[in-house]
Design a protein around this nucleic acid. Structure first.
Length: 269
DNA sequence: ACTGGATCCTGATCGC
DNA sequence: TGCGATCAGGATCCAG
């Protein structure tokens, strides 16, 4: 489901199908997502679609009058289908094009979002986003500086969008494992050297996952596969009770910020 | 200014 | 087999 790599893959996959198409109709079947879908998106009818890009886990789909901002939440998927194809359960939002195709958002849990961002303005949820993890704006020095006043757990810190975007629950655990840092360690007590290591490992893990993005998406479109998609490549996530690949200690599971966290008690401190 | 907790919602799975 | 409790890959908002 929607970790950063999947949003990236979705964005890339969607682009050739929707960019340059003219919108014939916009259909809202369930307005109540994370926030109500604004009526402005209806005004897209007749407009020519521009390009689509990813920012954090949001997709920004540009039109001349503004942009559609889409988020997949925990359970969202987007598909391009032939217009008129029977709706599936939890299809909430649809954009029909002149070429007979339609873009559909399906989201069982409805944690996703469809918003409208007028031209030359920026929604606050976009404005407040920290740097992209794969950009040069994000490195060890930046991270160390940013964490200086954060006393909470390092794992929560790297999952905070104001610090860095796109690090989900899985990759937070994985990158901390690779860096030998205990998830509960106070963020401001991670040394500069270790911040550099951590920043590099976040990039590494995400890049690797993006390479697998296609597979990820495919797995997901198939029948479920909850913990599974990336499973072979995960060192600690979802592996409580198993042996640490480095030292054979038993991997532990704790709860941090209401999210499951996995770590090796010997390798990480 | 930072942080922990509640919160939105459905569905799959686990334990009894 | 049934049923309630628990857990999911997100992230904003709000009280303290």
């Amino acid at each position: 489901m929607p970790e950063l790599p999947e949003v990236e893959t979705t964005t890339r996959g969607l682009a050739p199908h929707i960019c340059g198409q003219t919108v014939k109709a916009v259909n809202i079947y369930q307005t109540q997502l994370r926030w109500p879908i604004p009526l402005e998106v209806q005004h897209l009818e007749g407009q020519l679609s521009g390009n689509i890009e990813r920012r954090a886990k949001y997709m920004l789909w540009h039109f001349t009058t503004g942009s559609v901002v889409m988020h997949l939440g925990m359970s969202g998927t987007m598909r391009v289908v032939d217009a008129g194809t029977p709706l599936k359960k939890h299809d909430h939002f649809e954009v029909v094009f002149d070429n007979g195709k339609a873009l559909r958002l399906n989201d069982p849990r409805r944690f996703g979002a469809v918003l409208w961002q007028p031209k030359d303005s920026e929604l606050s949820i976009i404005h407040s986003l920290g740097p992209e993890p794969l950009s040069n704006d994000f490195d060890g020095d930046y991270l160390h500086h940013k964490l200086a006043k954060r006393k909470g757990a390092i794992k929560n810190a790297i999952m905070t969008n104001a610090v860095v975007v796109g690090v989900g629950n899985i990759y937070a655990s994985e990158s901390l494992f690779l860096s030998g840092i205990h998830p509960k360690r106070a963020a401001n007590r991670v040394s500069k050297t270790r911040c550099q290591l951590l920043a590099n490992n976040i990039k590494l893990v995400l890049e690797k996952a993006i390479q697998q993005g296609g597979t990820t998406l495919k797995d997901f479109t198939q029948t479920d596969g909850s913990p599974g998609y990336f499973a072979q490549q995960l060192n600690v996530y979802g592996r409580a009770g198993e042996a640490c690949p480095n030292c054979q200690s038993v991997i532990k599971k704790i709860t941090l910020g209401q999210r499951s966290s996995f770590y090796c008690p010997s390798c990480q401190n």
